[in-house]
Deep mutational scan, measured.
Amino acid sequence: TTYKLILNGKTLKGETTTEAVDAETAERVFKEYAKKNGVDGEWTYDDATKTFTVTE
Rank of each mutant, 00 (worst) to 15 (best):
G14P: 04
N37Y: 13
T1N: 09
E15Q: 10
D22K: 04
T53R: 06
E19K: 07
L12K: 13
V21K: 15
T44Q: 12
E32S: 09
T53W: 09
R28Y: 07
E27Q: 11
E32Y: 06
T55D: 07
T53Q: 06
N8M: 13
T53Y: 11
V29M: 11
G41D: 02
Y3Q: 01
K13E: 06
E15H: 11
E15D: 07
Y33H: 05
L12C: 10
G14A: 14
G41I: 01
T1G: 10
T44P: 00
D40P: 04
E19T: 14
T51W: 02
A20P: 01
K10I: 13
V21P: 15
G14V: 15
K13V: 10
T2P: 06
L7K: 02
T16V: 14
A34M: 05
E56C: 05
K31A: 05
L7T: 05
V39R: 03
E32P: 02
R28P: 03
E19L: 09
Y3K: 00
T11I: 10
A48H: 10
N37W: 15
K4L: 09
L7R: 02
F52N: 00
K13T: 12
N8H: 12
T55Q: 07
D40I: 14
G9L: 14
G14K: 14
L12S: 09
E32C: 06
G9S: 09
G41K: 01
W43V: 02
D46F: 05
D47P: 12
E56K: 04
G38P: 02
G41P: 01
K13F: 10
E24S: 12
A26H: 00
K10Y: 09
T49H: 07
E42G: 06
T17I: 10
D46V: 05
T49C: 04
R28N: 07
K50G: 04
K13R: 13
T44L: 11
V39K: 02
V39S: 03
K4H: 15
L12R: 13
N8Q: 11
E56N: 06
K35Q: 12
A20F: 04
W43R: 00
K4R: 12
T11S: 13
D40V: 14
E32L: 11
L7F: 12
T25P: 02
K13S: 13
K4F: 14
V21Y: 13
Y33E: 03
A20D: 03
N8T: 09
V21R: 07
T49I: 08
T11L: 15
V29K: 10
G41R: 01
A26S: 02
N37R: 12
E42M: 13
D22M: 04
K31T: 05
T2A: 06
L5N: 00
D40S: 13
V39P: 02
I6Y: 07
T55H: 08
N37V: 15
F52R: 00
T17G: 04
A26I: 02
L12W: 13
N37E: 09
E42R: 11
K50R: 15
K35S: 11
V54Y: 02
A20L: 03
D22I: 03
T17V: 12
N37T: 10
T11Q: 10
D47H: 09
G9Y: 06
K31F: 06
D40N: 10
T49P: 02
T16S: 12
K10P: 08
T18E: 04
D22A: 04
T49Y: 05
E32K: 07
L5V: 03
T55S: 10
T25N: 11
G9E: 03
N37P: 01
V39D: 02
L7Y: 10
K4D: 02
L5I: 03
T55A: 04
A23T: 12
A26M: 01
G38D: 07
A48Y: 10
T18N: 04
A48G: 08
K31H: 10
G38S: 07
A26C: 02
I6F: 07
K35C: 07
T11F: 13
E27R: 12
A34T: 07
T16K: 07
E42I: 15
T53C: 06
R28C: 06
G14Q: 13
A26Q: 00
D40Q: 14
T53A: 05
K35R: 13
T49L: 08
L12A: 10
K31V: 07
T2I: 15
D46H: 05
G38A: 07
G38E: 06
L5T: 01
T17Q: 11
T51K: 03
E15G: 08
A20H: 03
V29I: 12
V21F: 12
A20C: 06
L7Q: 02
T1R: 08
Y3N: 01
Y33G: 02
V21H: 12
E56W: 08
F52S: 01
T2Q: 10
T55M: 07
D22W: 03
E27D: 05
N37D: 03
D47Y: 08
E19M: 11
K10R: 12
